[in-house]
Computed example of a mutant assay.
Amino acid sequence: MSSVTIQDSTKFYISEKPIHLEIPISQFIASLEKTAKSVSDLSTFNANVSSLCSFISNEMHAFISVDVLTVMLLTYFPNFAGLSQALNTHLDSLFRYLIRLDKQSQMHLQEFTSYLILLVKQIINHTIDQNLKASQVFILLTCTELFQNIQKLPLELVIQAVNNCHCRSEFIESPQSLPSFYSLLCQTSAPFLPKYSHKEFTLVLDLDETLGHYSRSNFLVRPGVKEFLKETCKYFELVLFTASSREYADWAMQIADPDGLVMLRLYREHTINCEIKDLEKLGRDIEKVVIIDNFPKAFEKQPHNGISIKAWTGDIYDKELFKLIKPLCESVQGSCKGLKDIVNIINSKC
């Protein structure tokens, strides 16, 4: 297996704004200390961290995510004594920062985070070429993917991915059948989408003939996809929902969405009869879900939630996605109270 590396350019930044907690600081610190003592048990550690998520500022999510991923590595590769010591040092620096919130503790937390990331990187690179079980390869590759995306993902999604990875690892029999990183962020049964602090409205996107078109072993990207995703992600939780296979969809999205703006992805196994997309199964307020699809039958169970877009097969002058950006974003910023307002605005302007 080839070597896998974590980006060297990853930097962690803490704002100088004070962190406001909704519980007494003494209770919060006690909860953190309890969490630190559970590092030998991945499930308990993640459960304790999850209970603190709503009290932790978004800027701290990446720092604590580092600890969650490190505990996961230690669970499956317990012989790395240096990693365990580095983890405890990092947790201690995290506690000190949250208690003091001063320049010195901030600097120490950033330094210890960089050191811990470097150590994890060295361990992954050292271990990945060894004769490992398929489940161990799965753990290492998942950790690598999560570290690469650690500053994009809310802490709740990191925990979700780690828990799913932990549960599924024992069923992995071959490195050729590994679940994708993206499939770990969602559930295989309803409700499909994870619980986390997401945007109020959810925008569901089809893949083939909506975002792009497969032709002669290539995936062609529809004009405007980059601009469309960049703007709509500011106001919507973006979800890919495709009737295609997971392997194909992830490959196509590497081309269509290289920045990984659409982190949540649902595949063929989430559809009904490989074509119907039941939005009720997402686990979101159905009054605040919109789907864009070139195949109206896909959203026939919730026709009032759907925007039918012209199928795209390669026209380089196509403007359909460009035409949707402004009305979609303006509808959410305006006075609309639900999806009917959004769809009506889109239909009236496009």
Rank of each mutant, 00 (worst) to 15 (best):
L205Y: 02
D129M: 15
S40Q: 08
S43K: 09
T232K: 06
Y267K: 09
Q333E: 09
Q104W: 14
Q104C: 14
F228R: 14
A62R: 14
S180L: 11
Q136W: 05
Y214T: 06
M253T: 07
V225E: 06
L141W: 04
G212H: 07
L87D: 03
I255W: 05
E209D: 10
P191Q: 08
P24S: 00
V66I: 10
D293M: 01
C350K: 10
N125L: 09
I291K: 00
T44H: 05
I307G: 00
V68F: 13
H304N: 15
F112Q: 09
K297H: 07
Y214V: 02
G260I: 04
S197L: 05
I19P: 05
L266M: 07
G334S: 15
K310C: 03
A190M: 03
K340E: 14
C350L: 09
D208F: 08
L184K: 08
I139R: 13
E200Y: 04
W251I: 07
L229F: 01
L157E: 06
E16C: 14
K133D: 12
E145L: 09
Y182W: 11
I346S: 00
T242R: 02
C274M: 11
K152T: 10
L203I: 00
V332I: 11
L279G: 04
S65F: 05
C233D: 05
A134K: 04
D41K: 02
A190E: 12
R216F: 13
E227F: 02
K103S: 11
K11N: 08
I286F: 02
C165I: 04
Y235F: 12
S169F: 00
F299D: 00
K34H: 06
L211Y: 00
V221P: 10
I19E: 09
I19K: 04
N305L: 00
I56S: 11
P327H: 03
F45L: 05
H166W: 07
L240H: 04
I345T: 15
A190S: 12
D293R: 03
I255K: 14
F45G: 05
S169P: 09
N344T: 13
K34G: 15
I345L: 07
K199H: 08
S331T: 07
I123H: 01
Q151P: 05
M72R: 13
